[in-house]
Nucleic acid binder design. Structure first.
Lengths: 217, 217
DNA sequence: AAAAAAAGTTAGTCTTATCTAAAAAATTAT
DNA sequence: ATAATTTTTTAGATAAGACTAACTTTTTTT
């Protein structure tokens, strides 16, 4: 259907659209794909020819319905393979990404559907991200960064982006863990810092902290 | 390590070496790879530069030890994935080849070793072909066609070549299945037909049938 | 052994996806 | 609003792998 490279671009654009809502910039795609902006321009033109994206010179790129469907197909494969690697083959979480990155490009609908069945139709992957169904429908929202939430929002901690010992100890000291319910009590505009409530207790956290916590609303 | 294309050439040369012992011809490789002889010449030169094959202009190509090891690595992956597709995901025989053809190029030693363990270290793939171990050692000989056996020989059914429903039903009706012990009671010279014994029962089978059953002696 | 046929190689072209360098457009700063 | 900076695009080049057409070597036929 689509080449490996095309699929990777579609997936990158899909992920970036979730953050920057007004058309994804060429530089952003280049960053995500670890490639040069000029390569991105070439590729988005090609994807535009195939009706997979809307591309306006100098303005940005968005997925068309067709492109979104294709991207969700890749995301579905990636996440199902991740479940398989972790649950069936007992891999560690940091080992699975590179392998799933390859497996997601295997061309066979039947394969992924049978794998889905074998795993008993999981709704989420091991990072807490939802797995789209055959038709590209996602049961629940994607996880968000705590930093993206507004005052009054609340959700559950489903993962961390940064995994340094310092950061994990910071969380530990405050009894913030995967599964914790977090509510945003206040948010400062000028520096993005927040006051949050976790299990009755209140904490002040910087923007940097909030940008490294994944939340499910 | 090696590109998909390089791996496919190595595998093709490996398979062809088993038949034509005196250096594989460029045309033979082209046939196996469904490509043009000129493309083969280009590639074998490249493989020769990498010390994976011995290539002598106009004479033929053979695998070096290094090339054989690489080829066996691909064969191992292919056969382990086939076992997985058939045993774990319940695919039919005729569906697995194209998918295994893609999966065999996934780069991860760890993945294939864990899969091997998950499948309980199978010695043969569903077609009866032996699976090389981590170090490229093959436990036993390659399978033979029932048609190649002589009166008095016996062995175990390890695979089928033809996979049409008609043929599979033919076998089913006589309770001939993978694992069945088969003994050749008699063989006619003029048409290659046989009388065989399977679990106490005797059957008459034509040469055509005997040419589609793989046996391990 | 010479002629004919088959097999194999070389040279040049094409596609996909990438890159660098230079130019153009958009954004930010003064 | 003009200048400076950043972002994006264009043009031209490169590498992998495949192709066609022409040429060379080997093998087969007579």
């Amino acid at each position: 259907m689509y080449s490996k490279s095309e699929e990777n671009y579609l997936k990158a654009i899909y992920h970036l659209e979730a953050i920057a809502k007004h058309g994804v910039s060429t530089n952003a795609i280049a960053g995500e794909m670890e490639t040069k902006p000029s390569s991105v321009t070439d590729m988005v033109k090609k994807l535009a020819d195939k009706q997979l994206v809307n591309y306006v010179k100098y303005k940005g790129t968005t997925l068309t319905e067709k492109g979104k469907k294709a991207a969700l197909g890749v995301v579905r494969k990636h996440r199902i393979w991740e479940v398989f690697l972790l649950e069936t083959l007992d891999f560690q979480w940091d080992e699975v990404h590179d392998i799933a990155e390859q497996l997601e490009h295997i061309k066979s609908q039947e394969l992924i559907n049978r794998l889905d069945k074998f795993l008993d139709y999981p709704d989420y992957d091991p990072h807490g991200d939802p797995i789209p169904d055959k038709n590209g429908n996602i049961k629940s929202a994607e996880k968000k960064l705590l930093a993206e939430l507004k005052k009054g929002n609340q959700g559950q901690l489903v993962g961390v982006r940064e995994t340094s010992p310092d950061f994990l100890q910071f969380l530990d000291k405050r009894s913030i863990a995967i599964g914790s319910k977090i509510k945003v009590l206040g948010k400062e505009f000028f520096d993005g810092s927040m006051v949050i409530q976790v299990q009755g207790e209140q904490f002040f956290i910087s923007k940097k902290i909030a940008e490294n916590l994944y939340i499910h609303i």
